[in-house]
Each structure stands twice: as structure tokens, then as C-alpha cells.
Design a binder for these strands. Structure first.
Length: 424
RNA sequence: GGAGAGAUGGCAGAGUGGUCGAAUGCGGCGGUCUCGAAAACCGUUGUUCGCCUUCCGGCGAACCGGGGGUUCGAAUCCCCCUCUCUCCGCCA
């Protein structure tokens, strides 16, 4: 969420920037300004009266002590009317505050200057590509056939146990999954990230902190009896570690990496293009999260992009990096790079990572701030995260691109983790 | 799941109706001393909102788990909720 001070000071600038995200903010901004003005006016008056009230109360205290009962009673008389007036004002203040907050959370994050305008995936800008697109024989199979052929991932069994979109990984399929997780975590460690293993259910406060709540509750599985949410991404628990925390500037950047299963209801988003591993209700992902100094958060973003790129390159997958246009970017992001790998038999690009700088949009919700050494003032940190990486589509691409007559060739970097070179 | 105890500043821990944003200790920061360090000593030490201020800052309000109530006045009294700990039960 944007800060109220920015809205007050740079209303027109915000309005202009949000056009890049195709968002017309004018009406909301005007409403916010007027609510904020009213709120401040009321608070100023209420504070003054409360101050007067406190002064009189203290006076009564000392009068009582001195035994001047009559004077104390007289002073009490004065408070009755004041008390009523304060109550009237503070009764207005609470709904006003809520209304103000409700309006502010409607505003998306401002896109970074480098974000191009645009409406959808076609307007994204390709910043880099790498690897070689494999030429597969006509007989090449899509991954949903390969997993059956080698009996490594079982969707039907998942349906029996849970439902659609909850696959069972078996034998070398399970080992490949585990190998990828370990590989990604180890690479994260080498890049200076601390490994963490967070809970995969979170409470409401955490859901709000990273922006899943209040709007996207339909996308999360909810455990009603305890009011917990199954995480849609490790971003939620890992970023919320720093909720309500004041850091010192010299601790930044903080880098965490974690593996978790991720759960997404994906309500209403099923169709032909999401066959097999392309979209699941439960999947594995390794996530990198950075808490950065505002002056250096784009250096962090650059570093994260290189890290993710390195992972894909080491796996030998053809990829491209897209800088998302305003219209394709998420509500909360200031700048996002999507990583896509080429899936040889499906003959299409699959998104495997989304790496973003949220600047202070999340930290304002999280109340994650930092202080410069010797400085009294707190400032909001910048938060960033990226998938490094999401597994199912990586698996799909490996299976499809690496299929040979002898089976599926495991990428070399993974062999020490899998213990086998071919899935056959 | 049953019974009991508790939740106070970065941490530990006082405080049971008035001058308490809160003793004291530890930690942190600054200083004295020292070649330097340690020790000792001195000083300082939270957050949020509002108003004023060119900076430094000043003033006011709120915050003692969360919400509500009683009162001129609440960390302190009352109600509700959440969480934690101990014992028992169950259990990887």
C-alpha cells in the first residue's frame, strides 16, 4: 500500500504513473485527500480537547490530595461537557480511518520508470534469452505422456487421494523433485541466502502483510476451524518474518531462501492450456526473498535476476527473460521480470519464475522499517522476492526437452543429487 | 481435550486507581579514563499519529497482548477474545 504522505505530496504524479498500469486513480485519490484532510482536522481538535481533559484530571488529583473537595467537584463539572465532545469526535474518527484505509489499499503500487505501458503479455519486453531451443523428432511426447510412459508422476492417484491438481510423484519422479529442491536451495546458499523452513500455514495478519488478504482469499485454501491459510507461496511466511520489525541499516540487505509446497485454489482458471504440470493446486517452489535498503533495492533485483538466470542456464534449459509491461504486472509490484523456459513438445514458453521489487508497497503493510545509524527516524525498507525456482514447469521442460531413445537425460548438475543419469 | 498460572519497553523484571511512557538491572549508544581494550564511572535510550518549525527540534495525543466498559482520571478495576507457560491426557 502506498504511504499517505506520498499521496498527499504527489497526487498528480501518482495518477500519472498509474496510467502505465492502466489504472485510473483520480477519483480514489481525490477521495483519499478529502478523507485525510477531514481526519487530520478532527484528530487535531480531539487531541486538543483530550489535552485539556488530561490537564483538568491532574488538577482534580492534586486538589483531592490537598483536601479541597469543593474545588475538585467544580473541576469535575467542567469535564462532563468536554468528555461528550471528545466522544463525539472520536466516534467519527474510527469509521473515517477505516474508510481512508479502504481507499488507500485500492491503489496499486507505482510501476518503476523502466516499465513499459501495455495491456497484456504481448506488450512485455524481452530483455534477454539464452540456451538453445531443441529440435525434437515428430514423435516427441508432451510431458503428460512421458510421465505415464516412465510412471514417475501419477495424476489419477492424486485424484484418488485428494483431487485434481494434486499429483503423486513416484520413484525417479520423486527423486528428481527432491534433487531439484536441494539443488535450488544449495545454489541459494552459495549466493549468500540463509536457508529457512517456514510454516506452510499462516494466520490472517501474515496474509494481510504480503497482500493476499483481504482481496485474494478465494485463491487460498482456508482451514476454517483454526482460521489459517495454506500459503500460495513461501513469500508469505518468509517476508512476514520481518513484519513489525525495525532493522538497522547495516543489516541490509537480508537474504533468505526457502523451500515450501505451495497451494493455490486457482478458482476458475482451468482449461486446455493447463494440462499436466502446467498448473497445479499443490506444487513445490524454492523462493528467494530480500529485504533491502531503498537506495540499493534495484541492485538486489539485478542480483536476483542473475541468480535465477544462472539456475536455468545450469539446468541447460532454453529461456527468455521478460520485463513485464504495466498491464501484465501484479497489483503490488514496481518492477517484475518473468522467466520462461521453452517446453519442447508443447512448443511454448512456460513461466517458471517471477522476480519482483515491491519497493515499499509491502513493507508499508508489514510495517518493516529500518534506521540509519544514529538516526531517530524510521523509514520503510524495500522488499523483493523471486521464484528460484517453481518446480513443475521446470520438470515439464526437462522431461520434454531431454527425451531420448534411452530415456530422459537428467541435467548434469542434478546427477549428484538424483544419483542416476537417465529416467527410464 | 482437562486443570491451573500468566501476557509490562531490545531482554529480564517492579508497579493494583492520580505527578507512570512506566522503578531497577542487563543490553545498546555517547563520553571520561587508556597507547588500545577491558573494568569502573557519567550521560543517554521505544513506537505511532497530529500541530508547529528552513535544519536542530518543540508541543500535544495515543500505545503496558487485542477489543470493549466503569471513572474527572486505568498498566492497575470489570467483561469478551487471542496467545504463552506448567501439570495431566494423547502423540510423530
Amino acid at each position: 500500500m502506498l504511504t499517505i504522505s506520498l499521496i498527499r505530496e504527489k497526487k498528480d504524479f501518482i495518477s500519472e504513473r498509474l496510467k502505465v498500469k492502466n489504472f485510473d486513480a483520480k477519483e480514489i485519490l481525490d477521495k483519499i485527500i478529502s478523507l485525510d484532510t477531514e481526519r487530520r482536522d478532527i484528530q487535531t481538535r480531539a487531541d486538543q480537547m483530550q489535552g485539556e481533559m488530561n490537564r483538568i484530571s491532574k488538577e482534580i488529583g492534586s486538589l483531592m490530595k490537598e483536601g479541597k473537595k469543593n474545588e475538585a467537584e467544580a473541576a469535575k463539572e467542567k469535564t462532563y461537557k468536554l468528555k461528550e465532545e471528545i466522544k463525539a469526535l472520536s466516534d467519527k474518527l474510527i469509521p473515517l480511518d477505516n474508510e481512508l484505509k479502504n481507499e488507500i489499499v485500492k491503489l496499486p503500487n507505482l510501476p518503476n520508470e523502466s516499465v513499459a505501458p501495455g495491456h497484456g503479455a504481448d506488450d512485455n519486453v524481452k530483455v534477454r534469452e539464452g540456451g538453445k531451443i531443441p529440435v525434437l523428432p515428430e514423435t516427441a511426447l508432451p510431458h503428460w505422456d512421458l510421465i505415464k510412459k516412465y510412471d514417475i508422476i501419477d495424476f489419477d492417484l492424486g485424484i484418488k487421494l485428494t483431487g485434481a491438481g494434486f499429483p503423486v510423484y513416484k520413484g525417479k519422479g520423486a527423486k528428481l523433485e527432491r534433487a531439484l529442491i536441494n539443488f535450488f536451495l544449495d545454489e541459494g546458499g552459495k549466493a549468500g541466502y540463509r536457508e529457512v523452513m517456514p510454516p506452510i500455514m499462516v494466520n490472517e495478519d501474515s496474509g494481510f502483510g504480503t497482500g493476499q488478504l483481504p482481496d485474494k482469499e478465494g485463491q487460498m485454501y482456508h482451514v476454517g476451524i483454526d482460521n489459517f491459510y495454506l500459503i500460495p507461496t513461501a513469500e508469505v511466511p518468509i517476508t512476514n518474518i520481518y513484519r513489525d520489525v525495525i532493522l538497522s541499516a547495516d543489516e541490509l540487505p537480508i537474504k533468505n531462501v526457502g523451500y515450501t509446497p505451495c497451494f493455490r485454489r486457482e478458482a476458475g482458471s482451468w482449461g486446455a492450456h493447463v494440462r499436466g504440470l502446467n498448473r497445479l493446486h499443490q506444487f513445490d517452489k524454492v523462493e528467494i526473498v530480500q529485504i533491502a535498503h531503498p537506495d540499493h533495492s534495484y541492485e538486489s533485483l539485478g542480483e536476483m535476476v542473475s541468480h535465477v538466470e544462472g539456475l536455468i542456464a545450469k539446468l541447460g534449459l532454453p529461456y527468455r527473460i521478460m520485463r513485464l509491461c504495466g498491464g501484465d504486472m501484479s497489483f503490488t509490484s514496481a518492477l517484475t521480470y518473468d522467466f520462461e523456459v521453452w517446453s519442447g513438445a508443447q512448443k511454448r514458453w512456460l513461466e517458471v519464475s517471477s522476480t519482483s521489487n515491491f519497493e515499499s508497497f509491502q513493507s508499508n503493510r508489514l510495517k518493516c522499517r529500518y534506521k540509519e545509524k544514529g538516526d531517530k527516524q524510521t523509514r520503510l525498507v524495500h522488499t523483493l522476492n523471486g521464484s528460484a525456482l517453481a518446480l513443475p514447469r521446470i520438470v515439464a521442460a526437462i522431461l520434454e526437452n531431454n527425451q531420448t531413445e534411452n530415456g530422459i537425460k537428467v541435467p548434469e548438475v542434478l546427477v549428484p543429487y538424483t544419483g542416476f543419469e537417465f529416467i527410464d
